Computed example of a mutant assay.
Amino acid sequence: MDKVMSNKRIIALYVLPSIILIMAIIYIPIVLTGYYGLMRWNGIGSMEFIGFDNYSALLKDDKFWDSVMHSLVFALLSTVTLALYLIVALVLTGNIKGANLFRKIYLLPMLLSSVAIAQLWLKVYHPTTGILNTLLVSLGFSDPPAWLSDPKYVLGALFVPILWQYAGFYILIYYAALKNIPNTLVEAALIDGATPRQIAIRIKLPLIMEVIKVTIVLAVVGSLKYFDLIFVMTGGGPNGHSEVMASYMYRQAFKAFDFGYGSAIGFFLLIICLVATWVIRKLTETKDPIQYS
């Protein structure tokens, strides 16, 4: 076996299928997206090379930059709510009553598709028959907001189901990381007189910092390319006030049949995600990661 595995040709033969698959589903589509962004194309007829006209038009498109700002708002909110998920995970790792039941409940949204969640929250936010406005009316609010039709509330209203949908995912990651911390460290801190708050801040959080960095990247990049739930619930409305980069790309490519411009948006979205990932990694970079095993 050692002789076979030391043969570079055999190793290349084993690796080749994976390389072909990765090229086919990741790198080739990226290159083609950038290439189509150089074209004027309606998706059916012949393509006309126009150079960087689509990209220069993109930089002057106010609606596109509005969608970028909306995506950044979702990214910021998603990053802030990671603290809430972390607190819940910290509580669940303690010996509290009902923790086992709650660990089953918070995973339920992960079992639903984004479309199903969108339909559920459309019913919640319905201006006349929705449970939210019905509750507000019963509490004395005579004119409750139209949550998905009012520009002042639409982004916040959309973020609530996003927070609910991904709560189980991030709590599960933090819970697994926290349970992986040796009990001996916590017991030693308790013997030294540390409080639960001090243990959480000074011991547990530093030990799972690498996991926290990964979740920040996942939250930011996932928010920048978020599409399905927003598209089903508002379609980017009202009047573009909930338009995000992915929905604007879809609108240009499949509604306006400008696949060249839509591809330019998609390629620009990729660049923004890569830059965001690089910035986060640089900001959270540590020279000496903490080891506990």
Rank of each mutant, 00 (worst) to 15 (best):
D2I: 11
I10P: 01
Y14N: 07
L16F: 11
P17H: 15
L32H: 14
Y35M: 14
Y36W: 15
Y36E: 14
N42P: 14
N42T: 11
G45A: 10
M47T: 15
E48R: 10
I50Y: 07
I50K: 04
G51R: 10
N54L: 03
Y55G: 09
L58E: 01
W65C: 02
L72H: 03
L76F: 10
A83N: 01
L84R: 06
L86H: 06
A89T: 06
V91R: 02
G94R: 15
K97F: 06
R103I: 00
P109W: 01
L111P: 03
A118I: 01
Q119S: 14
L122K: 02
V124Y: 08
T128H: 06
T129S: 08
G130W: 07
I131R: 05
N133P: 02
V137L: 07
F141K: 10
S142E: 07
P145W: 07
P145D: 13
L148H: 07
L148P: 10
G156Y: 13
W164C: 04
W164A: 03
Y166A: 08
Y166E: 09
I171V: 15
A176S: 11
N180L: 09
L185S: 06
A194I: 11
T195H: 09
Q198S: 09
R202H: 15
I203S: 04
L205K: 10
P206C: 07
V220L: 01
V221G: 13
S223C: 04
F227N: 04
I230S: 05
I230E: 03
V232W: 11
M233I: 15
N239A: 13
G240N: 05
H241L: 03
M245Q: 00
A246G: 01
R251M: 12
F259Y: 13
Y261E: 05
G262F: 11
I265W: 07
I265A: 10
I265L: 05
I271A: 08
I271M: 15
W278Y: 14
W278L: 13
W278H: 14
R281T: 06
K282M: 09
L283H: 02
E285W: 07
D288Q: 06
S293I: 10
